[in-house]
Design a protein around this nucleic acid. Structure first.
Lengths: 97, 97
DNA sequence: TAAAGTAGTTTATAAAATAAACCAAATAAT
DNA sequence: ATTATTTGGTTTATTTTATAAACTACTTTA
C-alpha cells in the first residue's frame, strides 16, 4: 500500500541538498551550507553519501588558493528525487486507498 | 530557508501510521500492521512514540478474549501532520527561492 | 611569526529504526 | 489433560543514521 521512501533522500539535509541542486544545477559547498543551515561536518558527510549513491557529482578544485567543492546533480539523482516525490504523495495526500 | 521537518513525522512508518489515521479516524493494531507492512515490534514502538508525543491516543482493551489496541489521531496530531506537509512542500517543489 | 580565518574531513557520540526474542493468554491438536 | 500453535502484542538488542566535536591543511592578516 505505501511505497517505500528512498532512505537516501528521506533525510532532511540530503533532501534539502538535492532540492537545491535540482534548481541550480551546480552549487558550491558554502552555498549549500548557507542555504541548508547545516554544519560543515554534517554537510561533508551527507554530500559524500549522495555521491557514493551516484545522486550527485562532486568536483574538488582550488580557487584563489582555497579548496573549492562544487556539486552537481546527476540524472540518477534527478530520477531518484522525482520518484521520491511521487512516492511521498501517497503519504501526504489523505486519500490513500 | 528550509523549515525543519518534525522528526517525529519524518519517519516512513510513523508518517504512514498518521496518514492512515487521518483518513480513518480510528484503527486497530492489525489494520495498521497490514496497511503499513510493518513488523509488530516496530509498529508497537512507533505507536508508543506517537502516543508519547500526543499525536495519537491508544486504547487497549479486549475483544473476544484477545487484547485489542485501537489508535486514534488527536487534534495535535492532525495539526502536526498538516504543518509537516506544508514544510515538506518547500523541499519537493523545485521553486525554493 | 603568531593568531585567526577558510574550507573542509574524520572520528566519536547520540538518537533512531529495525529485528529478534520474549510474554501472556487463548485455542487447537494429541 | 498436556502439549503445540496462534493471537496480539511488548521488550531488549543490534544495526543504521544523524549530528556534533575535534582535527587537518593551508592561507591571510596583524
Amino acid at each position: 500500500m505505501f511505497k517505500d521512501l528512498d532512505p537516501i533522500l528521506h533525510s532532511q539535509l540530503r533532501l534539502a541538498i538535492v532540492s537545491l541542486l535540482i534548481t541550480v544545477e551546480e552549487a558550491e559547498f558554502n552555498f549549500l551550507k548557507e542555504k541548508t543551515g547545516a554544519t560543515s561536518g554534517n554537510l561533508s558527510v551527507q554530500l559524500d553519501k549522495l555521491k557514493t549513491e551516484g545522486y550527485i557529482e562532486v568536483n574538488k578544485s582550488f580557487r584563489n588558493n582555497y579548496p573549492l567543492t562544487v556539486c552537481k546533480i546527476t540524472k540518477k539523482g534527478i530520477g531518484a528525487f522525482e520518484s521520491y516525490v511521487e512516492h511521498l504523495k501517497q503519504y501526504i495526500n489523505p486519500k490513500n486507498g
